[in-house]
Design a protein around this nucleic acid. Structure first.
Lengths: 130, 130
DNA sequence: ATTGAGCTTCCAGTAACTGGAGGCCTTATC
DNA sequence: GATAAGGCCTCCAGTTACTGGAAGCTCAAT
């Protein structure tokens, strides 16, 4: 398979696939003409990576997961540990965003949004010194 | 004021303050010895930026907000528009993270996390082909 | 005179790609 | 056989918002 077909079947841009090869996540063969030549297993890996990325796993976490995926003697506890760590990160991010959201939505609600300069949003940002 | 004092009073690292000067968000004076010399107004701007950043505004949004802050003839509608756009982005991010969280927490719950290789998380990532 | 802290600039690196330039390879058409 | 289109190649630069570090000047105190 050439990169175009793999791109289509995995849903990943060709650029991204080349990048993943650069950083050692996949190692496709090469044809005589220099083109990358992907096996089914490479495609599966890339699809795996795409899915893991949509779940928000970092590239390094993906590398770990891929290693476990390919290691028949893994313990599921290892996988679970990685996933739980990521879940905890997601929770932190959500909490941070919610804090921002709460503060910001109060400010937005308080702002009349008309043609006058008076603005609670700017007042808040300026530390009330205004 | 030298950068150290401004850093302490604004809560921003000196590195960040220099960076903000680089990209034109503040323009401190210079002393004869080459040191940056900050006025109170510069400190206020930096504190403003720090606060806006904690609310998640991008640097470019901060630049816009700072411009409005300094423009006595602004209309609060302009500020509100920027804030609402940012609020919408936050909502999108929260929704994405929640989706990830939901999927991932189901998978984590389904994984026994013991010494056996069988793992629903990997099964999901591999597209069920496992 | 010599520390040590504080300041300066400049370069490189982070995360995970993405865009673009310049240039082969392949296939089809005239 | 020439040519054009499209796919592929590599390499370089840019993105966001900083952060770390090196080499070196300045200042205050000893």
């Amino acid at each position: 398979m050439n990169i175009g077909e793999v791109s289509e079947r995995s849903g990943l841009p060709a650029k991204t696939i080349r990048y993943y090869e650069d950083i050692g996540l996949v190692r496709p063969l090469r044809s005589d003409n220099g083109y990358r030549s992907f096996r089914e297993a490479d495609l599966h890996k890339l699809a795996f990576l795409g899915r893991a990325r949509t779940l928000g796993f970092s590239i390094e976490a993906c590398r770990t997961l891929l290693g476990l995926y390919e290691d028949g003697s893994r313990e599921s506890a290892q996988v679970k540990t990685v996933a739980e760590a990521h879940l905890a990160e997601i929770d932190v991010k959500i909490a941070q965003l919610r804090d921002m959201r709460d503060t910001l939505s109060h400010l937005v609600d308080a702002c009349r949004g008309d043609d006058r300069p008076d603005c609670p949003i700017l007042r808040d940002l300026s530390g009330g010194r205004d």
